[in-house]
Nucleic acid binder design. Sequence first.
RNA 1: GCCGAUGUAGCUCAGCUGGUAGAGCAACGCUUUCGUAAAGCGUGGGUCGCCUGUUCAAGUCAGGUCAUCGGCUCCA
Length: 617
Amino acid sequence: MTGPEQETVSSVAATTPAPTAPVVLPKTSESENLLKIRHSMSHVMAMAVQKLFPKAQVTIGPWTEAGFYYDFDNPEPFTEADLKAIKKEMGKIIGRKLPLERIEVSREEAERRIKAQNEPYKLEILERLVEPITLYTLGEQWWDLCAGPHVANTSELNPKAFELESVAGAYWRGDETKAQLQRIYGTAWETADQLSEHRRRKEEALRRDHRRLGKDLDLFSIEDEAGAGLVFWHPRGARMRLLIEDFWRQAHFEGGYELLYTPHVADISLWKTSGHLDFYAESMFGPMEVDERQYQLKPMNCPFHVLTYASKLRSYRELPIRWAELGTVYRYERPGVMHGLMRVRGFTQDDAHVFCLPEQISDEILRILNLTERILSTFDFSNYEINLSTKPDKAIGDDSVWELATKGLIEALERKGWAYKIDEGGGAFYGPKIDLKIEDAIGRMWQCSTIQLDFNLPERFELDYIAADGSKQRPIMIHRAIFGSLERFFGIMTENYAGDFPFWLAPEQIRLLPVTDEVLGYVEELQSQLKAAGVRASIDRSGDRLGKLIRTGEQMKIPVLAVIGAKEAEQGAASLRSRRDGDLGVITKERLITTAQSANQDREASLCFDDSGNVGE
RNA sequence: GCCGAUGUAGCUCAGCUGGUAGAGCAACGCUUUCGUAAAGCGUGGGUCGCCUGUUCAAGUCAGGUCAUCGGCUCCA
């Protein structure tokens, strides 16, 4: 468990950030200067590439949040060594203090200049440009079609504040049927300090990578032999998942839901009826034949919940019906797209469906928003970005239904008091939706939760209920997921906490560290008492010295390490060291047990003792 | 699926232009019974992702395949 790699990892974790003034990284979108730098830097790179690789044709080269990239069509892919050479050439160009000049040209003039250079992609770009057509020269020789803005001279570019980061394939115009280009990614800043801060952040993201932590903390694995995108939950990860699921179930029961279990496969006719076979087939595992019937592994849970609804006659008095399920689904993902727990082929949705009356929409959505907030905030996600997506051009259902439903969503958001953006026409063909993104500890946004109205499935399965007047009516169906995918959420949460899980969620909460073998009897007694109280306590029996026991415990990010030597054993106590809060002092075992127990009950992030009642010094 | 890179012990990695594998940590054993981030010594452990080919000889070369990583595309 302890490799050289881990040493780096844990020493980063152990050292508090340097107390020097923090470098604030400006965003391209906020800094005109940075935007110019990056724009110009991409031109400098393109010029460097064309000098070193005369056959390279240029395409586009925009700025990004952390830098810039440029796509080239080059007969040979660029290598790492090429990047070094390109960077060196860029340094030379910058050193020559070349002016960048904006020139406005006629379409004909631009075309003439491009043809002279034999740049077919530029010609294609030109076709789509509207006047005024501008180009920027870089020195005497080189120019590119560009709207700008740019720095006035390469002397404004800091040769110590940029780096070429990677090379990757990219399609022309992002279309996979078009030519594959070579994209070179770079990062560029105003100062060298900003560049090193950018590097530090990249390392920080690496340190938090759930794939790394999943391995180091022994939470899960993905096994080649079983196949890509299929997750094995190890005992420690499984324990955490169970805690998450238990909390989720409790929250759902309290939130007025009932839970369902449905099969993993069903006769393929179900997927014909639902329409998935028509519009979702390429994301589905192929069918399997059993007893001359075709069965289909489920990519979604909804048809099962719909069938459950349809299993008997429903009255309006029953509505709203709220059913949730932790349903494991399988989806075909193309090779090469899998990514740790974030993108897999088998995952568990925290899926729920609400069947309700049209006039109940707003109440039900509000109820879902409240439950969503409750569940996400328990994992310390409390900054949200909300999108409301409305009717697209191609849609089913009457305008009046869409209007009613969209109004219901807006009303719920207003009642909740949450700010939201409207994505006009961004809804699914079968109904409007609300998507919610959460912000993690290092400012990244992740979309997990989604609430979608569905006018399609009730229609296809001819769902109905008996209304007050005795007539048959179609219910409104709402799909919603809060975690989205349990696997993916687990990955996001792991990165959010950087593996330093809150006390209640940690797979191993308290590790007892015997200073000598003499105290093992007492340590074992304490462990079984903690376990009896539902606290996940373990004993480090390695026989290593205390320093090593602590080191190992910290590396495994155990929330509480309990040092027990002769003194503590005699006092019936433990000397506690909290990963989050440092030394907690010597605490009697009774207090430790009750405090840990209530911390579990209240889902606390750490153990908290007030000062009274500590044992001696 | 596409472009590029990678795949050697449980982990992290070394192994030059082909001559049947090494280190550190981990594991195990012995000694040490130790007080808040690594005690000492020793032992075991790999058909070098998999298949096929070239060669007297393949971890090393070639082809295929699977997986992983960085992207593209797609998406929970």
